[in-house]
């Protein structure tokens, strides 16, 4: 009983710590401890950022398995390079940079092969079995189709454009933060974002035109 209480208290502590800003003193202390080789501090760091890293990876890669692999690789790289991290740097930007680099490597490895998840893939994985009614299944199918279309739209972008767009539009980072995370200038990031949005619109227009023609 006392063990469970202690576990819950630790989880609450972790959540509180994760809610704090990346440059807060306690977070800085945690990073310093992790740099010094404290494995418990590194574990806390993983707890804090794991979901964030996973969601960003998924948004860039659009594939759950690839995103899990990328998350694992990100934390291995964080451990490898945390010695070179300076305390005056922005940890979140540094982490985003690693995430983007790992995702780029994954995309390169994947090559031209598209690996987004379709409705059938999710059905095969048994994720839809738990759904209660047919309506739920239908809604999920529509959502899955929508995801596949967005993944196809993102496939029309270069890896740099994709990363810039995801960080700006989905992660909600400012242009300056995106530039810092990608190691580019703000002008470059703006150009990439502008080009990426135009391509997404073009793809959507094309899909809508095809759908209208099919209906006729």
């Amino acid at each position: 009983m006392s063990g469970e209480v202690a576990e819950i208290a630790l989880m609450t502590d972790n959540l509180r710590l994760c809610e704090e800003s990346a440059n807060s003193p306690s977070r800085t202390l945690l990073i310093d401890r992790a740099k010094a080789g404290d494995s418990s501090a590194y574990e806390e760091l993983i707890d804090c950022y794991q979901r964030k890293v996973l969601s960003t990876s998924w948004r860039i890669l659009r594939n759950r398995e690839d995103a899990y692999d990328a998350t694992q690789e990100v934390f291995l790289r964080v451990h490898k390079y945390i010695g070179g991290f300076r305390t005056d740097q922005d940890f979140a930007a540094w982490l985003y940079r690693i995430v983007v680099n790992v995702c780029r490597d994954q995309l390169r490895k994947r090559g031209g092969a598209r690996r987004f998840e379709s409705f059938e893939t999710e059905q095969d994985a048994g994720r839809l079995d738990a759904l209660a009614s047919n309506e739920d299944i239908e809604a999920n199918a529509i959502r899955s189709q929508q995801r596949a279309m967005i993944a196809e739209a993102l496939d029309t972008l270069s890896s740099k454009e994709r990363a810039a767009l995801v960080l700006r539009d989905l992660e909600g980072l400012s242009t300056e933060e995106v530039a810092r995370a990608l190691g580019s200038s703000q002008t470059t990031v703006r150009t990439q974002i502008s080009s990426a949005r135009a391509k997404i619109k073009q793809y959507r227009d094309r899909v809508l035109k095809t759908a209208t023609r099919t209906r006729r």
């Binding site: 993983i46 707890d47 794991q50 899990y68 694992q72 451990h79």
Partner: peptide
């Protein structure tokens, strides 16, 4: 994933 990372480290 977390335990894998810690084991590998």
């Amino acid at each position: 994933i977390k335990s894998d990372v810690l084991v590998q480290i």
